[in-house]
Each structure stands twice: as C-alpha cells, then as structure tokens.
C-alpha cells in the first residue's frame, strides 16, 4: 500500500493487518512521540518507556486485525499501552497503583493557588512536581492536558468508571498545586 499523510489510522491498521510494513512505519512515525510521552508520564523512566513503546507498537501490529472500531484508534492504542505498563509493573514486583486515594479531602492544605499558578509556568518546576505525583495522577493529568482526551475516553483507556476518572483528575490537580506551592516556598 502506498502510504500517505492523509491515510487515517483505521486505514493504516487495515493495511497492517495484511502485513504491510510501510503502514506500520507510518503508524509508528505518526504516534511514536505521543505514545512515548504517555508511557513516560506513567513510568518516569525514559529507558523503560522506550522499551514499552516497542512492545506497544508490536502489540498494535499483532492486534491490528482485531481492532473493532468501537473507539478511536488512539484510545485503543493507549489502552494497550496502559495494559503493558501494568504488566511491566507486575513483572517488576511493583504495586499497580490501581488502588488510589481517590477520596482525598477536597481542600488542599498548604496549597496556595497564586504560588501554584506562578510555579506551573516554569517548565522545570512543573516537571519536577509532576514527577513527585503518583503514576496514576501523572497519567490522568497527561491524558487530560496533553492528550486533551474526554473523561469518557480516559475511562475507556484505564478501564475505570468515568466518576473515578473525574475524581482522580480533581485530586491530581490538588496534589500538583500542593507540590507547586512547596516548590515555590522552598529556597
């Protein structure tokens, strides 16, 4: 298949299901960066993220024929990535972070919105504060603010109820504000 920029993800998957390596290459180039960023947001480890990027792309290749079109290709792809990370953590003997403190109190003692607002504009500070969050909190913030996905899509990727996504995003922001405030206060 002659691959062009205009080919939809669905068309690429269709070609990949027939063993078209050119389509796989195009798919990789189109989604590599965003997928890598997503994995990095969860793993906080560039080497592990690169390894899992390879695994996710391999899985996309193997499963291309099974894509049913019930969701966007990217949602399906992020779902694969999410599962790969969970498997990775299991192999590493790490807990999966699925049981989160999604019932944190709504206020954030110690958070100062003005200070947080100043700090969030500093990319370096933001990066450091994001790294201090738990992987699931980093993950939802990434999906909402970088990928700009709806809560319904995130719910589909993470396989948790939409209400859990809503609550997790809310608490992730509170915790981030607290981190940012602390970063501004510390010398």
């Amino acid at each position: 298949m002659a691959v062009s920029e205009q080919d939809t993800d669905e068309r690429l998957l269709l070609a990949m299901s027939g063993g078209d390596m050119e389509a796989m290459t195009a798919f990789y180039r189109r989604h590599e960066t965003r997928l890598y960023r997503y994995l990095l947001s969860k793993l906080n480890d560039s080497f592990a993220a690169a390894d899992l990027l390879n695994e996710v792309m391999l899985e996309v290749w193997r499963s291309a024929a099974r894509f049913a079109g019930r969701s966007k290709v990217t949602t399906w792809m992020f779902g694969i990535a999410h599962n790969k990370v969970l498997s990775f953590w299991r192999k590493q003997g790490q807990r999966e972070f699925t049981e989160l403190d999604d019932n944190l109190p709504d206020d954030a003692p110690g958070a100062d919105l003005e200070q947080a607002l100043s700090a969030v504009k500093d990319a370096e500070v933001l990066r450091a504060c994001m790294q201090a969050l738990s992987p699931p909190h980093r993950e939802v913030l990434h999906l909402v603010f970088f990928e700009e996905l709806d809560y319904a899509e995130i719910s589909s990727i993470l396989k948790v109820p939409e209400g859990t996504v809503k609550s997790r995003v809310y608490h992730a922001k509170i915790l981030l504000k607290k981190q940012l405030t602390n970063a501004m206060r510390s010398p």
């Binding site: 990789y28 960066t33 690169a50 390879n54 919105l113 969030v120 500093d122 913030l141 603010f145 970088f146």
Partner: peptide, 21 residues
C-alpha cells in the same frame, strides 16, 4: 491555573526514540 498547566504541559519538549525506535 488550568490554562497555564495545559500550556506548560504541551510546550514540554519530549523526544522519543525516533528512528532508532
């Protein structure tokens, strides 16, 4: 705050494995 968070996150340069990957 939310708008600044979104702008900062999206402007964060991240390079994946690229052609090596």
């Amino acid at each position: 705050f939310v708008k600044a968070l979104k702008c900062s996150m999206q402007s964060e340069p991240t390079t994946g494995p690229g052609e090596f990957g």
